[in-house]
Design a protein around this nucleic acid. Structure first.
Length: 261
DNA sequence: ATGACGGAGCGTCTCCGA
């Protein structure tokens, strides 16, 4: 059976809804992890998404963050929030949601940005990634295909940013952030590396400013980290940069992963 | 052309994003 799984940071679901619905229709993924919904759980546009055949598990706490899992192949054992996650500035944030879809366990994650290495948000980011490591170890104890998909806000290698020199003193490329990803791989997850539809590297994010998209000044910070059962079933994976084009896009492009089970 | 920030809210600025 073929299963199509996708992840996409939509940068606010309400203004993006027409584009997201159109993309869902054309791409027809079975399971979709969404990030940066920027609204509350109740305000998620359930009806038009359900009309396309999806069950929806959303988790939003206000104007920032917000994650969801959509599925056409079942949606069970939903967990809202990352068990053991840290709290920043006394405010709970909706950055993770887990669900089981047709026997595949997925976590949709929106890792904290970190802002600058000197900012308390950076420490929060590292603590959040440590909590993710613990959840991953727990999930890996289960014998089933499993993946963490989403906006990790970390570029795993220097090749994952358009110019490493432009990132001196910046988050997203520091050793501790990359170590956190390495620990996920050491625990048993593989980086499901997508193919680009154009150019030689599968960037997933391009800043809106300064013509970064047309100039392909991008970053690969949206990732699919799967266990052996998940990664071993992958038949194709690509970044849909077409979704970054035109008027009113998200600043992130979706990643589409095809599995044969 | 892919084309030179955008979203949200106690809002006409400020915060946040990466």
């Amino acid at each position: 059976m073929a299963v199509r799984v996708a992840t996409w940071n939509v940068n606010s679901i309400v203004p993006r809804l027409p584009r997201v619905l159109d993309w869902l229709e054309r791409t027809a993924p079975d399971v979709v992890c969404l990030q940066e919904l920027k609204n509350t759980t109740e305000a998620f546009p359930f009806d038009p998404v359900k009309a396309l055949g999806y069950e929806v598990a959303a988790f939003g706490l206000g104007r920032w963050n917000g994650v969801a899992v959509l599925s056409k192949i079942g949606l069970d054992d939903v967990v809202r929030g990352l068990p053991g996650e840290p709290v920043f500035d006394g405010q709970a944030e909706a950055r993770a949601i887990g669900a089981t879809c047709g026997g595949i366990r997925v976590w949709s994650v929106y890792v904290p940005n970190g802002r600058e290495p000197q900012n308390p948000h950076y420490g929060y980011k590292l603590e959040w990634l440590a909590a993710l490591q613990n959840v991953v170890r727990t999930e890996l104890a289960q014998d089933r295909p499993f993946a963490v998909l989403g906006d990790f806000n970390v570029a795993p290698t220097d090749a994952d940013v358009w110019d490493i020199a432009a990132f001196a003193e910046s988050t997203h490329v520091t050793e501790p952030e990359r170590d956190a990803l390495a620990k996920l791989r050491e625990a048993g997850l593989s980086d499901v590396f997508p193919r680009p539809l154009k150019y030689d590297h599968p960037f997933t994010y391009w800043d809106y400013r300064a013509g970064n998209f047309p100039n392909n000044k991008g970053m690969r910070i949206d990732l699919v980290y799967g266990n052996a059962e998940f990664a071993g079933a992958v038949t194709d994976a690509y970044v849909d940069r077409e979704a970054r084009k035109g008027k009113g896009p998200s600043d992130h492009a979706p990643i589409v992963v095809d599995l044969s089970r």
